[in-house]
């Protein structure tokens, strides 16, 4: 009996969690960073509430222009002039630019922006809209 008691050793399995936690945090930082980078082109704007086209949701576009409520034009989180916008648009390729305009922005600012895109060789634009959640209001009068 004494032999049996002496031969039983208490064994513990030591799992080193440190590398796994390292990897988890690396992944976390990676996703945080890439998400932030992906959103640099998109300002927080109050987009017009319209249904838009059904076939596409958040498609990546080569060129996104933000028009703020005060008429400021931003590209990739940077304020640009109309002349600079024209230059950037002419280098962006043939894909239709996405115009994310605040719903409260004046139409004069939108016209100037779109004219710059047209002068840069653009033939169409894609206006970003925010689809209403409740479709029961479709067909209601404009506010």
């Amino acid at each position: 009996m004494k032999f049996a008691a002496a031969g039983r050793r208490e064994r513990t399995l030591a799992l080193d969690m440190t590398p796994m936690i390292d990897i988890v945090f690396q992944l976390l930082i990676f996703f945080l960073t890439t998400t932030q980078l992906a959103r640099t082109a998109e300002e927080l704007l109050e987009l017009p509430r319209e249904e838009g086209s059904n076939e596409e949701v958040r498609a990546a576009s080569a060129f996104t222009v933000n028009l703020l409520a005060d008429g400021t034009i931003q590209v990739a989180d940077r304020e640009v002039s109309l002349e600079e916008l024209r230059r950037l648009a002419s280098r962006s390729g043939g894909e239709a630019p996405v115009v994310r305009a605040d719903r409260a922005a004046g139409v004069e600012s939108l016209n100037a922006l779109v004219r710059a895109l047209r002068d840069a060789g653009g033939t169409s634009v894609r206006l970003a809209v925010d689809p209403p959640v409740d479709r029961s209001g479709a067909g209601a009068d404009a506010p």
Partner: peptide, 20 residues
């Protein structure tokens, strides 16, 4: 992030004048 991630849609319009 899921709570703040709103889906956007597009309204296509050609530009009158050139290439319409």
């Amino acid at each position: 992030t899921a709570a703040t991630d709103r889906l956007e849609r597009r309204l296509d319009a050609s530009l009158a004048g050139e290439g319409a």
